[in-house]
Every structure is written in C-alpha cells, then in structure tokens.
Design a protein around this nucleic acid. Structure first.
Length: 933
RNA sequence: GCGGGUGUGGUGAAAUUGGUAGACACGCUAGACUUAGGAUCUAGUGCCGCGAGGCAUGGGGGUUCGAGUCCCUCCACCCGCACCA
C-alpha cells in the first residue's frame, strides 16, 4: 500500500464523523480535563496558516489527555458579532447574519480539513439568539447588582436599597457622591432613587467620549480613525461626549490583582495585567484656585515633594477650565482644547513634542501659600486620577521637560542631587528646601505631609487605579441589544415591574431586529434608532416607552463563552449547574498575547461576579494559560521606479534608481524569483510591465511582517493540506519552533516533515512491492531502548508543551528504527499510539494495518519502562580548564577516586597538561569532568 | 511615551537544573540507483586555518573551575495601549 495521504485522511475523517468519535459526554465518572482555544472571529478572509497553530497544540494535548484516561472537553465556537461584518454590510448591503453564517461555514470546513477533534455538537455562536439570550441575562444580573466593599463581593441591589433605607449612604458613598440620610432616601422620588442606585450598579449609565465624524454622521471605533481622520473618506473627526453603559470593573481591581497569584500564567502575562490595573498608593490633595470658588484635587504618589510644586496641569477636557481661565487667555485655551479634541489618547501619550497652554489662573499652595500657575496640557489624561496633577519639575521627567520648554522656574527640593540638567527621580536621600519637612527622609516626609494634610483637611490617603470602568455601549447594529427600556428617561431592565411590559416583552432574548439599512441613527445613535417598531414599545398599561438602541461590544459574548460549552443547549440556565460543577475551570487555555488585558481581564471580572452571585463555584475562568506566538508572513516586494507606472527594477539593482517598494503576492514568487508572466497577468495595469533584471532574473525583496491580505503574504492551510496532507501540515506547524514564539512561515521547510511521515510509513510497507513488512518477532533490547527513550521524551515534551522537540524525537525514532531494520509489531504498535495525537489520520490507518479494531484515539497511551533505557556506562566529556578536549567512558557508578587516575593517565589529558601538575579535578557525577591546571 | 517579549549557522531551531553549543530539519555540495526525478539512499556542511589549533550564542563588562543559561549595561526588532476581535 502506498502512502496516499489525501485518500487516507478523507477515509478517517468520514469514520470519525460516522462513529461520533469526538462527541464528549457529560458522564461524570471519569476525571475531567477542559482544553479551550480562544474562539475566532469568523472574518471574510478565512483562516491562514497562522490561525491553527494554537488549535493544533490543543488538539495534540487533548488527544494525549484522552489517551491518558481523562474525559476531555475540547470545544470550538465563533465570536460572531463584530464590526467588520457591519462595515462589510455598509459597503455591500449584505446582511451581517448572512455573511457571518457564510464565513463560519468556511471556517468549519477549513478546521475540519486539518483533522481537529472538536465536538461540533457543542458549537456556539455569540450572535445566535439562543446564546445572546444569556449574555443579556448576565447583563441584567450586573445591572441589578452592586459591589459591597465591606464584604468585598457583589450582592443583589436589594441589599443596597435596604442599606440606604436604614442608614443612608454615609458608609459606602463614592468620592464624588453627596451624603444622604435614611430619612432623605425615603423621601426621594423614583427618579432620584434610581439615579443614586446608578452610582453603584455593576452595569451603569454614564457619559464618555467617543470619536465623532460629522461628515459620516456617525461614531467611529479607534480602528476606523487613522492619522486623525476617518479611515473611510478621510474626514475630520473629534471627540464627543455621549451617554454610555459601563461595567464597574474598577470595584474588582484588588481582587483581579490578588487572583493572579492562583493562576498558572506566565509572569509576563500577570505583570501586564497588574500594570494595566495599575494600583498605586498616594494622596489626594486639594488646591484652592486664587480668587475663585473652585478647588483642584490632584492625586500624587509623592506627597513628600509637595514643596517642589512649580505649576499645575489639568487635562484639557475638564469642565473646570472654562470657569478659571482668564479673559486674556481664553482664546489660546480654546484653541488648544480644539487641538486636543482631534488627538487620540495614544498620540497624546506618545507625543514627544511638548505642548500646553497657560490658563491665566493660579492655585494657592496649601502649605506655603505660594501662587502656582495653572496650565493645561495633553500629557495629562482626564481618565487617570482626577485629571489634574501637581507638577514637580525637579523630581519628574515630564514635568521637568514641560518647565524647561515653557521657561517655568524650577524649585530644587533635592539639594545637590538635583543638577538642573535633569529631574532627580531616584527614591533615596532627604527632602530639602521644604519648610517643615526639610531634612527628612522620603518616608518621614511622607508621613509628616499626611499628618499635615489630615490636620488641615486638605485631602486623604488614597489608592488609585489606572484601570477604568469598561465602556459597554456601541452605536452599532451587529451586537447584542440591551434588555433595557426607558421610562421618563430612566433605564429599567425589561422584567422590572415598574415598566410593566406585556409578558411576552419581558422575555429574553431581546431579538436583534432585521434592518434594511445599516446607516447610523440620528445624533450619533446606532442603526437600531432608525427602527420605530423596535424603539417604541407599548407596555401593558398602554404607555409608550423607548428601548435602548445601543448594542453591546464584542467582549460581551466572549467574556463568558467558556461556560456555555458545558451545556450548550440548556434553555433553563446559562450553564447547567451539574455540568458546571463537573467541568469547572478551563484547565488549559491557549491564545495570543494580544488578549492579555482585554478579553482575559473581562472574563475574569465576569466570572468573579457570577461567583459572588452564586452561579458558579469557582472564581477564575482559566487555570493555566499558554500564549501562542504569531506566525508571520514572509512578504515579497517588487521595486517600481519612481515616476513610472509599470517599470520595475530587481532588488539587487534598486540602489541605482529611486524606487517605491510594492507588495507582490507570494504565490507569484518562487523563493525570491518573480514569475514575470504570472505577475503581468496579476493586474491589468502590469500587463505591459518592463523589468530591469539581474542574471536574467527578477529578484524580489523579502520582509517578515504580519500575515495579512493587504500584504499579499497569506498562505491558506487548505492549499498546504491538499499538497502534503493534514498530518504533515499539523506536524510542520509544531516543528517550526516553540509554540509561544513568533516565527515566519516558510512553505519550503515542510518537505522534511513530509519525508519523515513517508519514512515512517516505510517501516510498515515495502516501497517496491507495497506489501506489509510488519513482523511478529520479539523486539531486541536495542529496539526497546529506542522506543522507551521516545516514550519518555514525547510524554515529557507534551506535558511541557514542547511540541517542536517531540517532532524531532519522532524523526529520531524513525531514523533509528530504519537503521535497525525494525518492522516489529510490538514496537510499531506503541509508535503509532505515540504518533496519534500529532498525526491522527496516518495513525488510524497504520493502527488498522497492524490488525487492530476501533479508533486508535481510544487506545491507552504507552507506559514508559525505565529499565529498558538504563545503561551501565556513561561517556564523560573531559575538559581542561573548562575547554572540552576528549571523552572517557566510565561506569555510571564511578566515583571521583575511581576516575582521577584514569583521567590523568589519558593521552589527550597528559598532552594538554604539558607536564604541569594539575590543581584539582572537578567531577560532577553523570555530567562532566574538568581538570584545572 | 508606558507596558511586555525576543535576539544562537545561509534558514527554522535544540541545549528541560550553570556542565560536550548547533540535536532534528530546510537549503547547499559531492556521489549512488534510475529511462526519468520535486522519489530513495550515502557522505559532507558554524566561521577562520593546509594543519595544529583558534574564534563563535545581538554589543560591552562581571560572577564562576565552567555562562546561550546568572548579574550589570547598551543596541536592534516584534507585540499591546482601553470602540478590531
């Protein structure tokens, strides 16, 4: 029989489907193991070879675990709501539901092509009403819950109402919230009560800035704003305040930090989350504005430097600015604010050029009474702290640069350590020139300042977070509708008795209505605002209420999807409690680092809320996280001579011309040599292209970049599978390198892996006769040694996710068995089982060739037997002064006294000693010998 | 700007705990078999050198009997930064 991989792979794919080989039961007698891939967004471009990298790893691991006796859950689904489908709908008029379904179908075909063991009966799609019903349900839970800081957990909002009614809000009020008594609470009208509760709900309504494009009459995502203008049409954009839903993730900041200690994630990933949350301890401190009512509150981590304050800086979006700006400065300030409105936060943070504007106003130093000029600048962000800073140029780099740029005199509070050349940012030594804290250490000064702040009631100790509450509204069509209606401008969830909806309107899901146009609604609202039949809803009493017209963001559906796989068709609950108790956390979660602070933080937050409310019995969603690297594209370039339409010069000669590099499709290039005829056919405008060649060839430029359609460097796994088979493709992706590392795709290297599988096949079949050559002979000690060395290596490698070295070991096994001319069933049977997780199709075929029945995926994993690989002797490397010079073999039991005379008598050693006496001999048993001269 | 990561042959990489640097492959060179080769097999292949040998893990410095691995410092590249998912 020949290794006809296409036929063999199709045969076993059919078998797996027919026999439900990958169906997972909720049978709770076996130990469980939950393996999960970050589910994909089904884009129109389909999968490229970079996507399956992590999926192959989890496929191998889940097959391995299953053979080791676990009940393994390894599901797949689709993050099917999202902006690209809606943009595509705007361009082509096709409904996102239609294109999404088409894309998903294509994804499933591509995934199946690779031979994954997904249980498709558990597939979920976030855009399916049966799924988003429960996304809406969780939103409702968030809306009706608050975070009780005393108990450090979420509770139903009823407990807060009871608390307000009994004792007012004095004990749990937020910083910017006015105090009210129980009596006051009980006298509030409905609107006031709801407004007060809104300050505490985990899902709440507030205002936030969005990108607004006047010309397109719509709100834009960050992605849609490129270089300060809209991506579509290049129109100007600016920030605009809108009413938005938020999730109060900041209340969970401390628990999100603490929870990291319980997780098996890389330190880098944990560090990124910690930095994102950005907990810092410091002081809040109020400065009075001179001759005004207003105060400016700042947050500082260095209250000890308060006597070094030379100016204050406010974020340009603060409302306060209009009130304090002097008439002379008004025009400049307004012009500067206008400039900042056009700037993204990223640009503002990354900007090296210093800019700012003086308001004309002064603050009064709370201790010295000095007058401090108040500036505004884009480097202070409204969202962090209070949006205002006290600037200490002698102790902070940015403040220093700002002071120098605007010629502000710098007060030195660090004595000789501040040179005037740069800010002194070290945290040691004493504070000088600072009134009552002069001469104190930082620690003493900080303590003294805190006491002074408290005594004068100027502020307090404060913990600040960089983390902000999560914006949860999108002015879009293709997302989950909110289960929210407004009555008299007050938001309610649909089941609340206060809005008295008809019974059928109180049911989830609130179905996304069909639209004919994806055009935005009036005043920046989403497309749903255009549909009167959706917006207006009549309740049981005949009153007309209005629905929320925003939709939820992409991360709504992805924050809890791992729970749905446990009981994907449950109509009674978002997850079946029994199933949830069995499957618990995801044991192994695999995905890219790009989700480090978005998806992974939101999922952890949602899980903690569901835990607090008693719906799940674990607090962290993903026990172990493995980050796969990116497979980059290898782009090819042609060089068009500047000023011409279709004249190109080969890469080696491009220096002689002024050229513009252009991406060229990698399929038109063999290695680096351009196929000129194909290139001419590629684009009509290149039909008559002319080329300056080198050695009669056109050589392309090469660069490693992200794999993307626009760079023409995309390689489709379907093409690879067709040419080499899925087993080769799977093993080659693993062979490329460590899973967590980024690496460029190079189709040429795949030959080696393909040759290995063919060679493995030839252990079973004679090449010429195509007959089986498997024998029943008993294996030799040497053959058993090779096999068990491999069992040990592969098992250990899989457990530490080192799949590239596993593939190498399979090659070594195959090479050694070939050299030994071993065709013995006793050896090959175990070899096939070892190979099964990596190359399941060929493994099934050869398993049956050996006379076995059923699927090899159900076989037990081979056990390693140590006695087969034990050796009597060890070849020791012998080094002279640390340099390796020769090898000498000793029994593994040999001790230092045994080896010393032999080593010193060795020819090579005596030669290198050159008659000099040796100082000592370092002997590390089982490792090496080093002779020091 | 802030945060995280990565640098080893022509290429992808290995070296798991500080102990023989380059396993396993790609590519390349030579040869065998063959009507043929994009099949298969054999030998070689880090760099310099005829050789003995020397030099080599991004650059520089350090700790150690011994450093790709630990420490300091510099450089380059990649990823993320809150409405892409």
């Amino acid at each position: 029989m020949k290794y006809n991989y296409n036929a063999i792979e199709q045969k076993w794919k059919d078998y797996w489907v027919k026999n439900n080989v990958y169906q997972v039961s909720n049978s709770y007698d076996k130990p469980k193991y939950y393996v999960l891939d970050m589910f994909p967004y089904p884009s129109g471009a389909g999968l490229h070879v970079g996507h399956p990298l992590g999926y192959i790893a989890t496929d191998i691991f889940s097959r391995f675990k299953k053979m080791k006796g676990f009940n393994v859950l390894h599901p797949m689904g689709f993050d099917a709501f999202g902006l690209p489908a809606e943009q595509y709908a705007l361009e082509t008029g096709q409904h996102p539901a239609v294109t999404t379904e088409k894309n998903i179908k294509r994804y499933i075909e591509q995934l199946d092509n690779i031979g994954f063991n997904y249980d498709w009966s558990r597939e979920i799609q976030t855009s399916d009403p049966k799924y988003y019903k429960w996304t809406q349900w969780i939103f409702t839970q968030l809306f009706h819950s608050w975070y009780n800081p005393g108990l450090r957990k979420a509770e139903p909002i009823d407990s807060l109402i009871a608390l307000f009614a009994a004792e007012g809000n004095a004990t749990i009020k937020r910083d910017d919230e006015a105090v009210f008594t129980a009596a006051a609470w009980n006298s509030f009208d409905e609107a006031t009560k709801r407004a007060k509760l809104m300050q505490h709900r985990l899902a709440y309504l507030d205002h936030a800035e969005v990108w607004w494009c006047e010309a397109l009459n719509t709100v834009l995502a960050n992605d849609e704003v490129v270089n300060g203008v809209s991506e579509r049409g290049g129109h100007p954009v600016e920030k605009k305040k809108m009413s938005q839903w938020f999730l109060r993730i900041t209340d969970y900041a401390d628990r999100l930090i603490e929870g990291l200690d319980t997780l098996e994630w890389s330190e880098a990933m944990k560090e990124m989350q910690r930095n994102w949350i950005g907990r810092s301890k410091g002081a809040s401190l109020r400065f009075q504005v001179k001759d005004k009512e207003q105060e400016i509150e700042v947050f500082t981590t260095r209250p000890d430097t308060v006597f070094g304050v030379d100016f204050m800086v406010l974020a340009p979006e603060l409302d306060l600015i209009a009130n304090i700006t002097t008439p002379e400065q008004k025009a400049d300030v307004e012009q500067y604010i206008q400039y900042v409105k056009s700037r993204s936060e990223r640009e503002r943070m990354a900007e090296k050029k210093i800019s700012g504007c003086f308001t004309g106003a002064y603050a009064v130093h709370p201790f010295s009474g000095r007058l401090i000029p108040i500036w505004i600048s884009e480097y202070v962000l409204a969202g962090y702290g209070t949006g205002a800073i006290m600037a200490v140029p002698s102790g902070d780099d940015r403040d220093f640069a700002f002071a120098q740029h605007f010629g502000i005199t710098i007060t030195n509070i660090f004595g000789d350590r501040f040179t005037g050349e740069a800010a002194y940012t070290e945290k040691d030594g004493t504070i000088e020139n600072s009134d009552f804290i002069s001469g104190m250490s930082i620690k003493e000064a900080t303590k003294a300042i805190f006491e002074a702040i408290a005594a004068k009631n100027l502020g307090e100790r404060k913990v600040n977070y960089r983390l902000r509450d999560a914006g949860f509204s999108r002015q879009r069509y293709w997302g989950e509708p909110f289960p929210v209606v407004y009555k008299n401008g007050i938001p309610y969830t649909i089941e609340e008795s206060a809005v008295n909806l008809k019974p059928e309107d109180q049911q989830l899901p609130v179905v996304l209505p069909h639209v004919d146009s994806y055009k935005p609604g009036p005043e920046g609202q989403g497309p749903l605002a255009n549909i009167d039949s959706f917006v207006s809803i009549e309740n049981a009493a005949g009153e007309t209420l209005t629905r929320e017209t925003n939709t939820m963001p992409g991360y709504a559906g992805s924050s809890w999807y791992f729970l749905r796989y446990m009981s994907p068709n449950d109509d009674a609950a978002f997850v079946d409690p029994e199933a949830c108790k069995y499957w618990q956390q995801v044991d192994l979660y695999v995905g890219g680092t790009e989700h480090a602070v978005g998806h992974l933080l939101y999922s952890r937050f949602w899980t903690k809320v569901l835990f607090d409310l008693g719906y799940v019995n674990f607090e962290e969603p993903f026990a172990k996280l493995l980050n796969q690297g990116m497979i980059q594209g290898s782009s090819r370039f042609v060089y068009r001579i500047a000023g011409t339409q279709d004249q190109f010069v080969s890469a080696g000669l491009k220096k002689q011309h002024e050229v513009n590099p252009l991406h060229v499709d990698v399929s038109l290039v063999d290695g680096v040599v351009l196929d000129i005829e194909k290139f001419k056919q590629w684009r009509a405008e290149y039909a008559n292209a002319q080329f300056i060649l080198e050695d009669d060839k056109y050589i392309c430029g090469v660069e490693t970049e992200k794999m993307s359609k626009s760079k023409y460097n995309v390689v489709n796994p379907d093409d690879i599978v067709k040419e080499y088979g899925a087993d080769t493709f799977r093993m080659y992706e693993m062979f490329l390198g460590p899973i967590e590392m980024s690496k460029p795709w190079d189709t040429k290297g795949i030959e080696g892996v393909h040759r290995f599988l063919k060679k493995f096949w030839r252990l079973f079949f004679d090449e010429q006769t195509e007959q089986s050559i498997v024998t029943e002979e008993a294996p030799t000690a040497e053959e058993l040694k090779v096999l068990h060395k491999t069992i040990k290596k592969i098992t250990e490698d899989i457990e530490r996710f080192s799949f590239n070295t596993s593939v190498s070991q399979f090659m070594i096994l195959t090479n050694e068995l070939s050299d030994l001319k071993c065709h013995k069933k006793a050896i090959l049977g175990d070899a096939v089982k070892l190979l099964c997780p990596f190359a399941p199709h060929i493994a099934e075929e050869l398993w049956h060739q050996l006379g076995n029945e059923g699927s090899v995926t159900a076989a037990d994993y081979p056990e390693f037997v140590a006695s087969y690989i034990e050796e009597a002797n060890k070849v020791y490397p012998v080094a002279i002064n640390g340099k390796h010079r020769t090898n000498i073999e000793f029994p593994v039991t040999a001790e230092q006294t045994d080896i010393e005379p032999v080593v010193l008598a060795n020819d090579v050693v005596t030669k290198w000693l050159e008659g000099k006496p040796h100082k000592k001999i370092i002997f590390v048993k089982g490792k090496m010998i080093n002779v020091i001269v």
